[in-house]
Structures are given as structure tokens and as C-alpha cells.
Amino acid sequence: MMSLQCITIIFLTLAGSVYCEMTSPSTPIKVKAELGDNVTLPCRAPNSNLYGSLRIKWIKVSEDESVTEDVLLSMGLHVKTYGSFEDRVFLQGSDDNDASIIIDDVSMDDMGKYRCEIMNGVEDVMHDVILEVENGPAQGVVFPYSPHHGRYNLNFEDAVQACIDQGAVVASFDQLYEAWKDGLDWCNAGWLSDGTVQYPITKPREPCGGSSSTPGLRSYGRQNKQSRRFDVFCHASLLKGRFYWLVQPERLTYDEAVQACIDDGAEIAKVGHIFAAWKLEGYDRCDAGWLADGSVRYPISRPRKNCSPTESAVRFVSFPDKQVKSYGVYCYKE
């Protein structure tokens, strides 16, 4: 490699919520975006006479730089995207030297360091961009999650996937803090997006840090992401579709519930969907229904006898045998 360069640039997106700080050549550019935005990660080749087409490669670099995730590869007219970036990452291509990419519908999982590598036949350029993703507390809901095989069974990677599977992302510290201020009280520790493990307590009691302790977030600090296992706090955003109870003449097994939603042109709802509908849309129904993870829950925004007499909540029933025909189903349609 003949040279290592960083380009000093100020970049503003049309959305106005994403910006890039002016940096020195030795410092990665920092780009900030709000959850769900489209964001541009800037990168340019040196202004020079090019010999042949640019070869552009973008990767996402993990904390261990020996482990990377391919994002995009461009060679002439051929452009390929990979993994979770497929069909939502594009070259900006404003001119012949522009190697910037646009990421659609940014999620918390997109946060991290990205590396742009440009090879033009004369010199190779390597350029780092750090993407930070933010989200206001009013735009979503935080909920605790543990899978069907029980509590404290998720390492960090499992926790990230568990939230994704439920139509959500791992919550940040700020999101959990805002949820605690809004009354979230949960006595099981869960992963947050920064790799710490915490839980929110509004009503101090013996099993949850002691009855004489003060309300707040209890923290276990940073934990080993591979070996340590906890629950997770997920964050679901405002729904882009419709969450609803599917009216059926009979109760359904899990497989029948999945098929019933499909027959209605929808999918079986995820846990993130029911929490977002309950918290952000005031959805209320006193009928227990299947969800995609095999759990049975129901959302109550108006507490009342025989449903949730003391508080507004998403009530968890159980992870029942999937062959039982005791429940209806909640569906979600984009």
C-alpha cells in the first residue's frame, strides 16, 4: 500500500439529522444519524489521473479488527452488497472520485466503525468512518426479553439476535434510563447496546438490590460478551404497519396461528410489535394470543378487572406447548 489517507470533509445530508465532523487526516470521520434515517458515509479518492476503474470496498470493523463484516464491493459496473446490508446500501457516486455509500433505514445494529478501501491502480486509500446512531425516547418503547428456554441464557451476540428476531434492537443506556423514568421496573439484568448489563428499579425491594436502596438503574458494568449470559432489553420503534387481533371462530395451535396470519395477507406479530402497539398506539385487548417467538401475551392500556387490574402492561402468559388450541393470534401487516 503506497499511502494511507483520510479526507477532511464537512458533509450535510438532506434530512438534516446526520452530520460529519471536520477531522484531521489522522482521525476517523464521525457521522451521526437517528434511528430509521438514511445516512451517507463519506469517502473520496484522491484527485488524480486514474488508471482504470476504481475498486471500492467497504467493511464494518469489529472491536477485534481481525474480525470484519463485508458491506459493499464495487468493481466497475459490478456492485455487490452483503449480509444485513444487502439491498439497503448503495454507492452515492456523485462523481468519478466519490466512493461514499448511503445506508437506508439505519438501525442500532449499524453503529460502529466502517472502513472504505479504494484501489485505483496508482495508490491505495484507506479511510475510516464511525457511525453513531441515536434515537429519542418518544420514538420507541423498551421492553425486557428472555427466550423460551429461560432467563439468563443470552450472551451478547445472542441478545442482539433475539431483539432483531422480535422486530427490535438492543436498547441503549439512554433509552433504558428514559424507560425507567417512565416507570419501567424489572428485577432481571439485561444486556444494553454498549455491552453493559443493567436493570431498572422504581420500587426498591430485597431481591432487587435491597429494600433500603434508592430507585435507579442497577449496573453490573461491562461483561464478557462471549461467556456471560443474561436477559436483554430491546427497543422497538413506532410501527410502520398495522398490529391487530385476528378474529377466528376457533382457538389455534401455533402452526395454525402462523398460517392464519399468512392467509390474511400478514405475518404473525413479533414481541416488538405488541409492545410498540401497546405503548405508542394505546392498543388494548384482553385476549391472549400467539406471537412469533411461541409466546402468548396480550396488551392492556386500560387496566380493569380480569385483564390487568392495577397497571397498563403487556401481559405475558407463557411459552405453551405449540400443539395446544387454547389461544388466538396477533398479526402484523406492513
Rank of each mutant, 00 (worst) to 15 (best):
E334R: 03
L35Y: 14
I268C: 03
R304S: 06
K80G: 03
P46C: 00
G93D: 11
I29H: 15
L217D: 12
G136H: 04
P144E: 04
P303N: 00
M75I: 14
G272V: 14
A179N: 11
C286D: 12
Y332F: 15
D284F: 03
E63Y: 08
I56F: 08
S295D: 09
E34I: 09
V232L: 05
V133F: 14
I268R: 01
G76L: 00
Q5N: 12
P28S: 02
E206D: 13
V67E: 08
E123D: 15
G241T: 09
H127M: 13
T310V: 04
G195E: 02
S48W: 07
F85T: 03
T81M: 01
C234G: 07
R304K: 08
S312N: 09
S193K: 15
D255G: 00
L41P: 12
Y51T: 14
A236I: 11
A159I: 10
V160N: 09
T8A: 11
N153T: 14
L41G: 05
V67P: 03
D287A: 03
S62K: 15
G272C: 10
D124V: 12
F143W: 08
Q175I: 01
G272K: 08
V106A: 02
D321K: 00
A159C: 11
V61N: 01
P28F: 04
I300K: 02
V18E: 08
G83F: 13
S318N: 13
T23H: 13
I101H: 10
I118G: 03
C20D: 14
R228A: 11
A260M: 06
P25D: 05
G16E: 12
P207Q: 08
T27F: 07
F233W: 12
G150E: 10
